[in-house]
């Protein structure tokens, strides 16, 4: 099964040095399950981070020689169309680039391939040109899906840990550098809105039952409000004095 792993331009959260994203390293480990010699694909000029992918289990790395300000989508699509991979694995989003998380989906749209998100395990299907994917769902649930190849599959952080890095194989791995014709578009950033990051409170898990019911009261009296709050606390087991009516 001819497999490639899309490698983004990630940066280390502490040192800000270019590095291989952990999720993509996990994708390599998954790729190695179905392909003896998986390759990787990176669009960008800087090799220092992604070259580590060769030490995590890739045998070869294709690098599209593309400026960092360029939208890699069309160049990637053109390359993938030429190479005809059976399986394209990707992380969820870049780490340190523009990080829209949309690239795999837009790629799937251009290439006309099915895309399946959040894989934690892959195995070749019983029929030829199929792949069995275990998808991670909320609360630890798993769903087993069989898809027809070729396809794009993104990897979930709960996939098995990456293979430990090995310096020797990285040194021996091949890097194929591909020039890209100048027609590539600059990244379409103008339409994007930019605003300062704002921390949002964590969504608290709602307990089952009545607490999930309507609890929006518009302009209640203070006494009514107090009664409602106490009733809410009682109902959710935060305060235990018995119903107010009993006193």
């Amino acid at each position: 099964m001819k497999t490639t792993v899309l490698l983004s331009h990630a940066r280390h959260p502490v040192s800000d040095r270019p590095q291989l994203s952990r999720l993509e390293a996990q994708a390599i480990a998954l790729a190695a399950e179905v392909d003896e010699a998986p390759s990787g694909l990176h669009a960008g000029r800087n090799e220092t981070g992604v070259v580590a992918a060769l030490g995590h289990g890739l045998t070869a790395l294709d690098r599209l020689d593309l400026a960092d300000t360029t939208d890699p989508l069309s160049a990637l699509a053109a390359f993938l169309t030429r190479q005809r991979f059976d399986l394209i694995l990707a992380g969820r989003r870049g780490e340190g680039g523009h990080e829209t998380g949309l690239l795999p989906y837009r790629l799937a749209a251009i290439l006309g391939l099915p895309i399946l998100a959040d894989a934690v395990a892959i195995t070749p299907g019983a029929a030829v040109e199929t792949l069995v994917v275990d998808q991670a769902m909320a609360k630890g649930a798993r769903r087993r899906v069989t898809i027809r190849l070729p396809a794009i599959v993104t990897v979930h952080p709960l996939a098995p840990p990456p293979r430990p890095f090995a310096y020797g194989p990285m040194r021996r791995g091949t890097i194929r550098r591909h020039p890209v014709d100048g027609s590539a578009n600059a990244a379409d950033l103008d339409t994007a809105e930019e605003r300062p990051h704002r921390l949002r409170p964590k969504l608290m898990r709602q307990s089952a039952g009545q607490a999930a019911g309507a609890n929006l009261y518009v302009d209640p009296t203070p006494e009514e409000a107090a009664r409602l709050i106490l009733a809410y606390l009682e109902a959710n087991g935060i305060r235990r004095y018995g119903p107010l009516n009993d006193r």
Partner: peptide
């Protein structure tokens, strides 16, 4: 083991 095989205990990695 470490440099050629990457065969190191995961915790040590």
């Amino acid at each position: 083991q470490t440099q050629e095989r990457g065969a190191i205990p995961l915790k040590a990695e």
